[in-house]
Protein backbone atom coordinates (compact mmCIF):
# COMPACT_ATOMS: atom_id res chain seq x y z
CA UNK A 1 0.00 0.00 0.00
CA UNK A 2 1.35 3.41 -0.87
CA UNK A 3 1.51 6.12 1.81
CA UNK A 4 -1.25 7.93 -0.10
CA UNK A 5 -3.51 4.89 0.00
CA UNK A 6 -2.64 4.35 3.64
CA UNK A 7 -3.55 7.92 4.44
CA UNK A 8 -6.92 7.55 2.74
CA UNK A 9 -7.66 4.39 4.74
CA UNK A 10 -6.66 6.10 7.98
CA UNK A 11 -8.71 9.18 7.27
CA UNK A 12 -11.78 7.04 6.63
CA UNK A 13 -11.29 5.22 9.93
CA UNK A 14 -10.73 8.49 11.79
CA UNK A 15 -13.76 10.02 10.15
CA UNK A 16 -15.87 7.25 11.68
CA UNK A 17 -14.87 8.09 15.23
CA UNK A 18 -14.36 11.84 14.91
CA UNK A 19 -16.64 13.01 12.12
CA UNK A 20 -16.00 16.65 12.95
CA UNK A 21 -12.22 16.43 12.97
CA UNK A 22 -10.19 18.57 10.61
CA UNK A 23 -7.84 16.07 9.04
CA UNK A 24 -6.60 18.31 6.27
CA UNK A 25 -4.65 20.66 8.48
CA UNK A 26 -3.39 17.87 10.72
CA UNK A 27 0.29 18.06 11.61
CA UNK A 28 1.69 14.64 10.64
CA UNK A 29 3.82 14.57 13.78
CA UNK A 30 1.21 15.78 16.24
CA UNK A 31 -0.19 13.38 18.82
CA UNK A 32 -3.34 12.03 17.14
CA UNK A 33 -5.28 11.31 20.29
CA UNK A 34 -4.61 14.69 21.85
CA UNK A 35 -5.10 16.70 18.69
CA UNK A 36 -8.35 15.02 17.76
CA UNK A 37 -9.43 14.66 21.40
CA UNK A 38 -9.91 10.94 21.13
CA UNK A 39 -10.59 9.16 24.38
CA UNK A 40 -9.60 5.55 24.91
CA UNK A 41 -12.89 4.28 23.51
CA UNK A 42 -12.60 6.47 20.41
CA UNK A 43 -9.09 5.26 19.90
CA UNK A 44 -10.11 1.64 20.30
CA UNK A 45 -12.87 2.18 17.75
CA UNK A 46 -10.40 3.79 15.42
CA UNK A 47 -7.94 0.94 15.78
CA UNK A 48 -10.68 -1.64 15.31
CA UNK A 49 -11.92 0.11 12.19
CA UNK A 50 -8.43 0.44 10.85
CA UNK A 51 -7.69 -3.22 11.52
CA UNK A 52 -10.83 -4.23 9.67
CA UNK A 53 -9.96 -1.94 6.76
CA UNK A 54 -6.50 -3.39 6.29
CA UNK A 55 -7.63 -6.92 7.12
CA UNK A 56 -5.18 -7.31 9.94
CA UNK A 57 -5.35 -7.49 13.69
CA UNK A 58 -3.64 -4.59 15.44
CA UNK A 59 -2.20 -5.45 18.82
CA UNK A 60 -2.11 -3.12 21.78
CA UNK A 61 1.64 -3.36 21.58
CA UNK A 62 1.37 -1.60 18.21
CA UNK A 63 -0.44 1.39 19.69
CA UNK A 64 2.71 3.46 20.22
CA UNK A 65 3.33 3.28 16.48
CA UNK A 66 -0.09 4.80 15.90
CA UNK A 67 0.61 7.87 17.99
CA UNK A 68 0.90 10.28 15.06
CA UNK A 69 -0.45 10.47 11.53
CA UNK A 70 3.04 9.96 10.12
CA UNK A 71 3.60 6.89 12.29
CA UNK A 72 0.18 5.47 11.47
CA UNK A 73 0.74 5.92 7.74
CA UNK A 74 4.02 4.10 8.04
CA UNK A 75 2.39 1.32 10.02
CA UNK A 76 -0.52 0.88 7.65
CA UNK A 77 1.63 1.14 4.53
CA UNK A 78 3.85 -1.58 5.95
CA UNK A 79 1.08 -3.79 7.20
CA UNK A 80 -1.84 -3.39 4.83
CA UNK A 81 -2.15 -5.36 1.62
CA UNK A 82 1.01 -6.12 -0.28
CA UNK A 83 4.12 -5.48 1.76
CA UNK A 84 5.81 -2.28 0.76
CA UNK A 85 9.51 -1.64 0.42
CA UNK A 86 9.44 0.40 3.64
CA UNK A 87 8.40 -2.60 5.67
CA UNK A 88 10.80 -3.65 8.39
Amino acid sequence: MTPEQARAVIERALGEVAPDADLVGLDPDADLRKTLELDSLDFLNFVTGLGTAIGQRIEEDDYPRLATMAGTIEFVAAAGGQPSARST
Binding site: S40, L41, L44, V47, T48, G51, R57, I58, E59, E60
Partner: peptide, 16 residues
Protein backbone atom coordinates in the same frame (compact mmCIF):
# COMPACT_ATOMS: atom_id res chain seq x y z
CA UNK B 1 -2.95 -7.05 28.16
CA UNK B 2 -3.06 -10.84 28.27
CA UNK B 3 -6.79 -10.85 28.00
CA UNK B 4 -6.91 -8.43 25.08
CA UNK B 5 -4.25 -10.34 23.23
CA UNK B 6 -6.39 -13.45 23.35
CA UNK B 7 -9.59 -11.83 22.17
CA UNK B 8 -10.98 -10.22 19.04
CA UNK B 9 -10.23 -6.53 18.68
CA UNK B 10 -13.89 -5.69 19.10
CA UNK B 11 -13.91 -7.43 22.50
CA UNK B 12 -10.97 -5.50 23.82
CA UNK B 13 -11.31 -3.87 27.22
CA UNK B 14 -9.97 -0.41 27.91
CA UNK B 15 -8.44 0.25 31.34
CA UNK B 16 -11.29 2.66 32.09
Amino acid sequence: RERNRALAMTDRLVPA
